[in-house]
């Protein structure tokens, strides 16, 4: 087939699958949370409540699309689009299988970091444009939280980059033929997991939203599909971080017997479920605790991990 056409097909398939999966995640999360809290969750609409998402979508599309009169209109409209754009763009560099990857580049990880740091704008601008004190507090928390956790998120990935000798995600997966990087890079994995939760603003690090303190944080003033964009954007972020964890530390598509695509889906799904379990089990830390853990513990740990990995790689190379 024509390579351009093939690429377009791959892009469309990934876009469709990722968007539908993140929509289904809303259902999965509610069911799993219910399961872990001894409830049922949505089980009325359709088989196992699967059509609940469709019902929610219909509702959210037909809601009044309200822009507060005191808001900065253009920034207010533009902000939810940024998070969708940045997260969806990052899926371009994720190697789902050897064939199923939109673009192969030697700066894939840096691209992910750049996009995730641009994602902060969405939150900050939404918070500022809402012209609401709760929103602004949420936005400030989001900005400082995501900036500080981004620092050691990048550093925690560098161990795998050193072991694989490339920023290219495909090379990183191929370097895990013999041993998954989670074993030599366990500290890096834990740090990346924590940073990933903070980056997606999921519980227990959902301080920008913190509905028990800040109404709904940065998206207090949003309604209808603009709120839906933040909502789906969060789940897209969960899928993205789960896929990245499985690619960086758990050998991506590599695995015995089953075809590659099944392996990557299984691994990603496992981490998605883990994210939901975290939400079910963890309390929310205070904001100053969050910041001081980030800077006083996690950053030095990731630096130490980097130094040790570098020393070992250097010693082995000799």
């Amino acid at each position: 087939m024509n390579p351009t056409l093939l690429k377009i097909v791959v892009i469309l398939v990934i876009l469709l699958v990722v968007l539908n999966v993140s929509a289904l995640l809303i259902w999965l999360e509610r069911r799993l949370l219910a399961l872990w809290q001894d409830r049922y969750g949505p089980n009325r609409v359709g088989p196992f409540g699967l059509l609940q998402v469709v019902a929610d979508m219909i509702k959210i599309f037909f809601k009044e699309d309200w822009i507060p009169p005191f808001a900065d209109k253009w920034v207010f409209v533009f902000a939810p689009a940024i998070i969708m754009i940045t997260v969806l763009l990052t899926f371009a560099v994720i190697p789902f299988t050897p064939l199923f990857q939109i673009t192969e580049t030697n700066i894939a990880l840096l691209f992910f970091l750049g996009m995730s740091s641009l994602g902060v704008y969405s939150i900050v601008l939404a918070a500022w444009a809402s012209n609401n004190k709760y929103s602004l507090l949420g936005g400030m928390r989001a900005a400082s939280q995501m900036l500080s956790y981004e620092v050691f998120m990048g550093l925690s990935m560098m161990g795998t980059v050193m072991l694989a000798g490339s920023f290219s995600l495909r090379r990183i997966v191929e370097a895990q033929q013999h041993i998954w990087f989670v074993i030599p890079q366990f500290l890096g994995f834990v740090l990346f997991l924590i940073a990933g939760i903070a980056e997606t603003r999921r519980l227990p690090f959902d301080l920008p939203e913190a509905e028990s303190e800040l109404v709904a944080g940065f998206h207090s003033e949003y309604s209808g599909m603009k709120f839906g964009m933040f909502f789906v954007g969060e789940y897209l972020g969960v899928v993205l971080i789960s896929a990245l964890i499985s690619v960086l530390f758990f050998g991506g598509w590599l695995g015995p017997v089953l075809p590659p695509v099944v392996w990557i889906v299984l691994k990603t799904l496992f981490f998605i479920c883990f994210f939901i379990l975290l939400r079910a089990a963890m309390p929310r830390p205070r904001f100053d605790q969050l910041m001081s853990w980030g800077w006083k513990w996690l950053l030095p740990l990731s630096l130490a991990n980097l130094a040790i990995t570098g020393a070992v790689v250097l010693a082995r190379g000799r």
Binding site: L35, W36, Q37, L277, A281
Partner: peptide, 10 residues
Amino acid sequence: RSLWLVLLHM
């Protein structure tokens, strides 16, 4: 521990 206990609630 709390992660494990919550998981057992399944």
